[in-house]
Design a protein around this nucleic acid. Structure first.
Length: 319
RNA sequence: AGGGGUAUAGCUCAGCUGGUAGAGCGGCGGUCUCCAAAACCGCAUGCCGAGGGUUCGAUCCCUUCUGCCCCUG
């Protein structure tokens, strides 16, 4: 069952957290001679293993994994940077005649690799961001939104005034390249989407998925998540950085400080993970090209994997 | 056992002197083109503990019962 990947195709496994993407990706890689490319905004950080459910060497089963442990927790990573770096990795895997298997839960990052031109060029200007942020702190989000209404009224219609991040970004685009956001987006090269076999993996019904999430959080705690967070803090990882926004980490910090008890923190981690899973589902369901496969988290998972492998085999043979 | 308090959405509680109810959290749905495990938006919660009474009308007043909490013994 080792089809040759000579058409620059790649497989992408998406789905909510705890659905089994890691295992599926390795199974696929093993079956078709592939390498896994993680598309996860938190697994990129070194020192964050348990809480991000990073695959262990055993779980990797000899399959090369990329885009894991590529950044320091104090770095500010971004979707654009991921798009560049993962894109390079994918091209490299393809050149070696292997099948890239993208697996991950960060839809935004997946978009950044799959539509490489959609993210570049990308004007940026930290000064503008900081200035606007300062204005927001001093006079509130409305003050910043007023600027957007004046400079790019079209975007102001689309972006909610409370969504400061996006409001700032739109103003940043307008000021750095003299175009409105809409003009800027359409000015870039048309999106050359990579030739991707999109696989959606989900656990059904929803309660089963949530059960799995809850159990996995308990398992993470049992395996020492608390110490992992402690170690990060001791190593001086910034608490307001992107890395420490990860679910499972930000909730445990107050527990370590004794400001809240562990039980409360764990319950919150479970809840936030469930909310996150829902957001992932919402994101991934938008892509009409994704073919979904469901399992109940029981014995049927193996059968589902076989079905998926068969599906991929057919797809790889198509012209 | 006696005295006091309380009973309203899954949870914590609002509801001025009677006109069939709201906030937060959670839940559900959605948005997303360099912070995305982030940020943001929308929707619905309900025999207002049970029975009786007063009233045109009771979540609100009276009464009985039940549950819970506190005090005294």
């Amino acid at each position: 069952m080792c089809a040759q990947n000579n058409r620059n195709k790649l497989v992408c496994v998406v789905g909510p957290t705890a659905a089994g993407k890691t295992k599926l990706a390795v199974d696929i890689a093993l079956a078709f001679g592939g390498e896994v490319v993680s598309a996860d905004s938190m697994q990129i950080y070194r020192g964050m293993d348990i809480g991000t459910a990073k695959p262990s060497p055993e779980e990797m089963r000899g399959v090369p994994h990329h885009m894991i442990d590529v950044a320091d927790p104090n770095e500010d990573y971004s979707a654009a940077r991921f798009g560049d770096e993962a894109g390079t990795v994918i091209d490299d895997v393809l050149e070696r005649g292997k099948l890239p298997v993208i697996a991950g839960g960060t839809g935004f990052y997946i978009g950044a690799v799959l539509n490489p031109d959609g993210f570049a060029p990308r004007p940026e200007n930290d000064e503008i961001r900081k200035e606007l942020q300062k204005l927001a702190d001093a006079k509130g989000v409305d003050a910043v939104f007023e600027i957007l209404k004046r400079e790019d009224p079209e975007s102001a219609e689309k972006i909610d005034k409370n969504n400061l991040k996006r409001v700032i970004r739109a103003i940043e685009i307008y000021r750095t390249c003299g175009m409105t956001r809409a003009e800027f987006l359409s000015s870039r090269p048309s999106e050359k989407r990579r030739n991707t076999i999109m696989i959606g993996l989900n656990v059904v019904p929803r309660e089963r998925l949530y059960e799995r999430i809850n159990l996995r959080v308990d398992d993470m705690m049992a395996r020492g998540l608390l110490n992992e967070v402690r170690a990060l803090l001791e190593n001086g990882v910034r608490e307001n950085g992107t890395a420490m926004q990860a679910i499972g980490y930000k909730e445990l910090v107050p527990a370590i400080r004794g400001e809240t008890d562990i039980g409360t923190a764990v319950a919150l981690i479970k809840q936030r993970s469930r909310n996150y899973a829902k957001r992932q589902l919402t994101w991934f369901k938008r892509d009409a090209g994704t073919v979904w496969f469901e399992h109940t988290g029981g014995n049927d998972f193996e059968k589902t994997i076989e079905i998926i492998k068969k599906y991929i085999k057919d797809k790889l043979q198509e012209e």
